[in-house]
Design a protein around this nucleic acid. Structure first.
Length: 309
DNA sequence: AATCCGGGGTA
DNA sequence: TACCCAGGATT
């Protein structure tokens, strides 16, 4: 574990005009130093590529499901050039059931872009990172902080929730990421590289382990006495009426998932008749297979379907 | 800003 | 059942 150690407690009294978020950061940083999970992409021997792979896998997939897949993946393709040279079918099978398999496709495209544009090394700087396939605002900031050790404002769903509660006093952040949230996050992030990296990791960890969405463990929170939401009596979610959970049963996403599962598990090309067995609605199935072909996740050769070579 | 895109664990 | 998860791309 080589996450930066917590800063020493601030001994001098805060001067007038001091950073109003310093106490929050210090408390969360100390807590992180004591309770951080020992995740492999945080290990001393981690690589920038390993960090990038972990961040892509963690896009909408929980840590407990990513960890074993990440270990297998990194053992098989330890460097970008290795993944760039792999067969896409093998990449999609290794991705397994992590979900959103387009991420696996983009991760391989990302590896190829790193080889072609950056000599096989994960580039420095959020602008260069964001130009890579599958890398957005969050992932570029996370790689900058956790792989390169440079200051970045890292805001994921955990950090949004921590800031909404501790600073904003609301139960949950707004459904979509707002400019006001981005400004708050930038103001809370400390100026120095090491401090910013620690705050990024610690605030994410607090949201994942204590300041959780469903049943926050306020009794175990290092900032419970300063939390604006708790001080306000933990009011309910003001955006509850606008939140809608995505349907699953019967959606194209479910059908696509079934088709991909069938192709992953098959050793070779699958006849149309076998694909037809995964879903009862032929029209919907055809539409979904066509969209998978369009996405580059499936290839069709005559009456056979297979994962891309 | 709204939608689409997987899958599984949990209350 | 509903909700949630280290989001990104497209419209």
């Amino acid at each position: 574990m080589t996450v930066p150690a917590a800063r020493p407690v601030r001994t001098p009294a805060p001067a007038p005009g001091h950073d109003p978020h310093a106490d929050l950061r210090d408390a969360v940083g100390r807590w992180f130093g004591e309770t951080a999970r020992d995740l492999p992409w945080r290990a001393a021997d981690r690589t920038a590529w390993g960090v990038l792979v972990s961040e892509v896998m963690l896009q909408q997939t929980p840590v407990v499901r990513v960890e074993p897949a990440w270990r297998d993946w990194m053992a098989r393709w330890p460097e970008p050039a290795d993944l760039a040279a792999a067969a896409t079918a093998d990449v999609l099978r290794a991705w397994g059931r992590l979900g959103y398999p387009r991420r696996a496709l983009r991760l391989q495209e990302c590896a190829r872009a790193i080889v072609e544009r950056h000599d096989g090394e994960v580039p420095l700087g959020e602008e260069a990172l964001r130009a890579l396939p599958g890398v957005g605002e969050y992932t570029a900031a996370a790689v900058t902080a956790f792989a390169h050790g440079r200051r970045a404002v890292v805001v994921d769903t955990n950090v949004r929730r921590v800031l909404a509660r501790a600073v904003g006093g609301t139960a949950l952040p707004a459904p979509s990421y707002t400019a006001a949230e981005r400004a708050t996050a930038a103001a809370v992030a400390p100026p120095g590289d090491a401090d910013a990296v620690l705050w990024a990791a610690a605030s994410m960890e607090l949201g994942a382990l204590v300041c959780t969405a469903r049943a926050p463990r306020c009794g175990a929170c290092p900032v419970r006495d300063a939390c604006a939401w708790r001080r306000a009596g933990r009011p309910g979610d003001e955006h509850a009426a606008r939140r809608r959970t995505q349907a699953w049963a019967g959606t194209d996403r479910q059908v696509r998932g079934r088709v991909m599962a069938a192709l992953r598990e098959a050793p070779g090309p699958v006849p149309r008749g076998v694909v037809a067995e995964v879903w009862h609605d032929a029209a919907q199935l055809d539409r979904c297979v066509a969209s998978l072909v369009e996405d580059g996740l499936v290839e069709q050769v005559d009456d056979l379907y297979r994962l891309p070579a």
